[in-house]
């Protein structure tokens, strides 16, 4: 692989002999790192299980098929919960993300050196941590249930939405803002007339996009006890009820496909 890539690079980047050696060394280091990683992983792997894997996989397959279709009657409420976690979580996240985005954008922040770093900190810290971890944390704090799931999804989405939104705010056409300022409008009026109309399409797109992702994420929040269909998945796994597991996986797949379809349709309608 390295040599092929190197040849490819050569097409558009001429190198001197020294650079060429440098690149070889870089590739060598890369390969060494990868080999080391692989060795470590394989060291902590029980290879007996791995060689046994095909048998276990076929075994699982026979046990999981056919799915236990009648179990669907018990999935109505969990699906409804999952939908609520995603939707309410997205709404809460947007309510917080909008002001954070305005505080973080270079052209709208009230203070570049005090408030902007703080807003960026909120964005980075909420974005870096997966919603499952937020759910774990919230369950420890406010107890298990749908509410913890809603908040976990909301927190995780704040950073994501605020980041995309503040980038959109930074890309607005400044002359439109100038024009509104020149009429003698107040700061808030400039915001409502000069900035908001420009970022509204981006906002709608981000909201729907995140909602789609949140549907996926809320399907598994139940694994840690934060409500939704993941709870059923988790309890079915615990009792090794594989036909139920396969049915739940099918339901989750369908939900994901539907949400992706809805989000694509809505985005298409807006933009």
């Amino acid at each position: 692989m390295p040599s092929q890539n190197k040849n490819g690079l050569k097409v558009w980047q001429k190198r001197t002999a020294r650079e060429s050696i440098f690149h070889w060394v870089l590739w060598l280091i890369g390969i060494m790192i990868f080999t080391y990683c692989w060795q470590q992983i394989s060291k902590s792997t029980t290879w007996f299980f791995v060689w046994d894997a095909p048998r276990i996989a076929t075994d699982l397959w026979t046990r999981a098929t056919p799915p236990k279709w009648e179990y669907i009657s018990q999935l109505g409420k969990p699906i409804w919960d999952t939908l609520n976690i995603a939707t309410l979580g997205t709404i809460f996240a947007l309510i917080i993300a909008v002001p954070v985005a305005f505080l973080a954008a270079r052209n709208t922040t009230p203070s570049r050196f005090l408030i902007r770093p703080f807003a960026l900190l909120i964005i980075v810290s909420t974005r870096s941590i997966n919603s499952l971890i937020w759910a774990l944390l919230l369950i420890a704090i406010i107890g298990p249930g749908v509410f913890a799931g809603v908040i976990a999804i909301a927190i995780r989405s704040i950073g994501f939405c605020a980041k995309l939104l503040y980038e959109a705010i930074e890309e607005i056409d400044e002359t439109q803002v100038e024009a509104i300022t020149a009429t003698g409008a107040s700061r808030w009026q400039v915001m409502v007339y000069g900035i908001v109309p420009q970022i509204l399409p981006a906002f709608a797109g981000i909201a729907v996009f995140r909602w789609d992702i949140n549907i996926r994420e809320s399907t598994v929040l139940g694994l840690v006890g934060a409500g939704g269909i993941g709870l059923q998945l988790s309890s079915s796994l615990n009792v090794l009820a594989w036909p139920q597991v396969s049915l739940i996986l099918i339901v989750i797949l369908i939900a994901v496909v539907i949400s992706e379809w809805v989000s694509a349709k809505v985005r298409g309608a807006i933009i």
Binding site: S44, T45, F49, A53, L60
Partner: peptide, 13 residues
Amino acid sequence: AILLVAIFGFGPL
């Protein structure tokens, strides 16, 4: 990950 853990056992693999 759940499925693969069930098939390959616990661990980073």
